[in-house]
Amino acid sequence: MRTRFQQQIEELREKLLRMGGLAELAVDRACQAYTERDLGRCQMVLENESLINAAEREIDELAFDILATQQPAAVDLRFILAVTKINADLERVGDQAVNIAERVMDLIELPAVELPVDIARMATAVSAMVRRALESFVEGKAELAQAVLEMDHVVDRMRDEAFIMLVRKMNDEPQVTQQALDALLVARNLERVADHATNISEDVIFWVLGADVRHHAQSASVSPRTDTREQ
């Protein structure tokens, strides 16, 4: 039993979870800021970004350290590779939250208008995806991650609908183009977050099953083989 090694792996897991919490919080805050036109929440998102960046660096360093000193194999090796990739995705999620916050700050300065897009509903779906992806990571359950992959299609459709509706709105009422454009960008940013959640899920499946499900590499057979993780 390599006790110290197991401790390091556990530390890495915890750090990534904290990072995931930060990223999730940033998206939620940005979306709330959108619906409530809340400048304060926008500020919080911007301030939090440096925390996320610092967390990203910390995780990379620890993963690098483990790789260099412990020569992990099999499930541990897959875990660390997955963590580094999930780490990068989470950092991008944080960036998207910042983008959304910036759009919201722009919107707040403009007159409020009724827009034919349900950002709140989309935000709910997206943050559910991020949460589920992180849950699948915590539990090490490929089935949970698989569910996230399926949700991605739903969010994609929402984004497409938002595009069509908002473009039509811009044509009909050119005076609200600015607001519509901002909303469209927020929708696009949210869809990006969903993509990152999808990537995270794929990495979790790779870690748990050792199967690569990216870009439909192969039809992933999600059979429960979670026993490999028991320690």
Partner: peptide
Amino acid sequence: KVFTNPSDKRTEDYVTGRFG
């Protein structure tokens, strides 16, 4: 395969150092 994704739990435990 043995070092990234072994089929047997005992192999996995051995290559990851969880053995014993």
